[in-house]
Design a protein around this nucleic acid. Structure first.
Lengths: 358, 358
DNA sequence: GTGAAAGCGCTAACAC
DNA sequence: GTGTTAGCGCTTTCAC
């Protein structure tokens, strides 16, 4: 008895039954016009009734290419959280759809940030034709090295001029600006910026924040900046600490919705009301943003477009094209957390209780 | 010039440089003890410095098996949401880790529920050795058919006795019971059950709910049941409608944290306080449950274990073993949303405003 | 229009 | 210990 792949039907079986050669089966199934219409129908019908699917590995081997794209979700070594931010998940979902609709398989891998270099194997082993890297990154160097070695990668992140790999991101600077302008328009005068500016994307959002302040004749107040991390637990601790020390602000601009929600929860627990006492803007416009109370004003990034651009990027990278940066539009979605309230304001508003600067 | 896989180094290159045959390279890299220690070292060093990874497709083809497991996330046709519930994401993350740590690749696919049968191709094409199906399902029939055809599947869901495929789930009945008992212990007397009992898992949770009521000498009140769907938008609409018609309850037991949070938000918007006026228990114990205000009491399902069991399940299914059902422990995590408050209760408590039954 | 034959990159008998 | 050889299931020349 021949050693064969766990009794799966294969082309040779179909060929035998149909009384043709394997090549004809292959051609028929590939929709080649070289094959007689009648035999083609016979073969395709047979294949369908046998629930035949061609062995993809063999196809790839023969064709010298794969139809799979790897998606890499970095996880920080410290943070053992399964998946950090819902935002990445949303992007992941869009990626899955974008890939599927274009006929690619999606290989999902979570890699320890410390071993980011390992992802090269995904491409060099032929498992995937290219790699999409999602996530916050302080990894510019590693990614540059990978791309330099010819690994096809496209990265979700901030547009860093002169990088040698494909980057897709939203316009963080405009995003920061829109959020801040809205808060200013709501009458806020002490807008606290929440986010770690060491991250390129956050740095750009901060620039937008500054742009908006300056355009309105204000200055950036260093006391109104807090380097809150993205990771949930750490963010909560940092915010709690922050609010324990100061409440001398009348608005928060948080660099993620998760952060904004956590801030809301902590403020709420302290008896501070949103939006009456403090207005809050988040970033990402998660589905959840419209489910919580108060519903959250947020900066939306066009995820479906992002996914398409990332796929396009890897494919281009694979073909050896020069890297590009795709910057997508951001928009502000206004909701309850920045509503301007008509009713008499409590004089106990925290923004009135302490003096500027701590 | 030979047609070769986009200039990737392969075994033959290493063999040439090392002055040995391809088989020796293969053996050395596989860690075979048959090969001389010295040559092995030479070869492995060479491979490392060349950043060589063996072509996985060729390996699989030759070995007649794949090291990939497909994970399927059904999406309802109506609901165009990228990914429905954060719970599934959390499970997905755990699955990714479980698979990685056991040396398997994860192929992620989202399929339209209507075309659930298509997933057979993932296995029959050799892309994956088996399939993990995640998600709410009214698909028992389709899954049974798949398993009947020999497709190795393991499913996250409710334990349905006599099924022909591997099932992993948590103890929904105990979960429902724990939640309800806790609410009873908190002094609640009109506990509303939120969830669509057409779903097997929800039906079991409802049984647990009933168990707890009966054990405490109470009866199930049909007016205290609402078939809220899991999907966020629909859930919000259904809850909004529910609360518009009745507030004759003093506790909510929601079948997902997402549902509980939405309920919280809607109640909050109506001026109802949690936990002072109404106590709320969710299900899933999302990371978010401890980030919102009030923090949410919830039933936890052990996701890491679940992931391991699912992987184990597919592997067993692939080997043709008889299907098993794995029922994991559920535990109750108590948080603010069910705190018993000492301070004087407002008499405007909604639970006191209307009469039993609507 | 169809078949025969070669070979994708690798592994595993089987020789030596 | 190492090399030689024969495929894994498929696609694609090249014949006819």
């Amino acid at each position: 008895m021949k050693k064969t792949q766990a009794n799966k039907t294969q082309m040779v079986d179909i060929a035998r039954i149909a009384g043709v050669s394997v090549s004809t089966v292959s051609r028929a199934l590939a929709g080649s016009s070289l094959v007689n219409e009648e035999t083609r129908k016979r073969i395709t019908d047979l294949a369908r009734s046998l629930r035949f699917s061609a062995n993809v590995g063999a196809q790839n081997l023969r064709r010298g290419q794969s139809q799979t794209i790897a998606v890499v979700l970095p996880k920080s070594t410290s943070d053992q959280q399964p998946v950090s931010d819902p935002f990445f998940i949303a992007l992941l979902g869009e990626l899955a759809d974008a890939l599927t609709s274009q006929g690619y398989d999606m290989l999902l891998t979570r890699v320890d940030e410390a071993r980011i270099d390992d992802i090269e194997g995904l491409a060099s082993s032929g498992r995937a034709l290219g790699i999409v890297v999602i996530g916050q990154w302080l990894h510019h160097y590693a990614l540059t090295a990978l791309a330099g070695r010819g690994v096809p990668i496209a990265v979700w992140g901030a547009a860093l001029p002169g990088s040698n790999y494909f980057i897709v991101g939203s316009d963080n600077r405009i995003g920061g600006r829109l959020a801040t302008e809205h808060l200013i328009a709501c009458g806020c005068r002490k807008i606290m910026f929440l986010g770690d500016t060491r991250l390129p994307e956050v740095a750009l959002r901060f620039e937008g924040y500054r742009d908006a302040l300056i355009a309105n004749g204000k200055m950036v107040n260093p006391g109104l900046t807090a380097a809150i991390p993205f990771e949930a637990q750490a963010a909560r601790a940092a915010l709690d600490d922050l609010f324990a020390h100061t409440t001398d602000f009348d608005a928060l601009f948080a660099c993620s919705d998760l952060m904004a929600m956590t801030a809301n929860a902590l403020l709420s627990a302290r008896g501070v009301r949103v939006p009456e006492d403090i207005k809050v803007v988040g970033y990402d416009d998660l589905a959840l943003a419209s489910q919580v109370h108060p519903t959250l004003t947020s900066v939306r990034q066009p995820l479906a477009e992002a996914a398409r651009a990332l796929v396009e990027g890897v494919l281009q990278a694979k073909d050896g094209n020069a890297p590009t940066m795709t910057v997508l539009n951001t928009t502000l979605v206004k909701r309850e957390s920045t509503h301007t309230v008509q009713t008499a304001k409590k004089k106990t508003s925290p923004s009135a209780t302490t003096k500027k600067q701590r």
